[in-house]
Design a protein around this nucleic acid. Structure first.
Lengths: 126, 126
DNA sequence: ATAACCGTATTATTGGTATAGTACAGTTGT
DNA sequence: ACAACTGTACTATACCAATAATACGGTTAT
């Protein structure tokens, strides 16, 4: 069963997208694997303190992207293969890094300053 | 007059926030300075192809944060001092780096991998 | 079988973003 | 002074995210 222990919705971005991305990053990290069972819509919404329809929208989007499989009455589960994972990893990394680089450039930082800042922050969190 | 040449609204985030952050990052970069004049609401909205009310919301928010000064009939202008700039810089850098680091960690990257990825991407864009 | 789950679908309401149109009063340049 | 611009305010509409309540039928465990 996939755990949502370290997930908390924040505002500034649609909750259903945050759930979507949390699962995608978990898959890329190898924490979430092919065949893994997802919590039910009702249970997860209660756990997160949000509406069942919000979870449904996240799961429906995942199904539309062929990352999970659902059938009425039973729990949903991950359907991942190597090709999907490689594609997902490339996509998420590119999006994340390019967005950050763009912001830091806009603030006038040099490459060295950017690297130093990320390095410092990483150590602080460890 | 502050230029919006390299600004294009994208979707996924409210336009008024994108304008807000673009100006803040320009101030942190030193491209936008104290006393600089802003384009009028009507002119900027026409330039960006968006509604005047959207620009108004961005500018109103900036005024609420004491980063610009407006008076009826005249153009608005930046009101920045060293203290505001230092605070702004610290805030924007912290937000940007911590968000990116969180995402990369969620994807299971090590510090070295993250730094290498940012370095590679930076060079590709230069 | 049957109770307790499950996914799925529908309708309604609320709040925020963005659009559109209009209006009024203050400033600026000529 | 006067025309052209400015900031500001207001109403109305449309769309999406999120909530709420309800309903139906399929699956699962006992």
């Amino acid at each position: 069963m996939i755990s949502f222990d370290d997930f908390r919705p924040v505002d500034g971005k649609p909750i259903y997208l945050q759930i979507l991305e949390y699962i995608k990053r978990g898959a890329v990290a190898g924490i979430i694997r092919d065949g893994d069972e997802l919590p039910s819509r009702r249970v997860l919404s209660a756990l997160l303190g949000i509406n069942p329809n919000t979870v449904q929208k996240a799961f429906k989007t995942l199904e539309d992207e062929n990352l999970i499989t659902s059938r009425a009455g039973a729990k949903s589960f991950m359907t991942l293969d190597g090709e999907k994972l490689r594609h997902l990893r490339a996509e998420l990394l590119e999006d994340t890094v390019s967005e950050m680089a763009r912001k830091l450039r806009e603030m006038g930082l040099s490459k060295e300053e950017a690297l130093h800042l990320l390095s410092e922050h990483w150590e602080k969190e460890e």
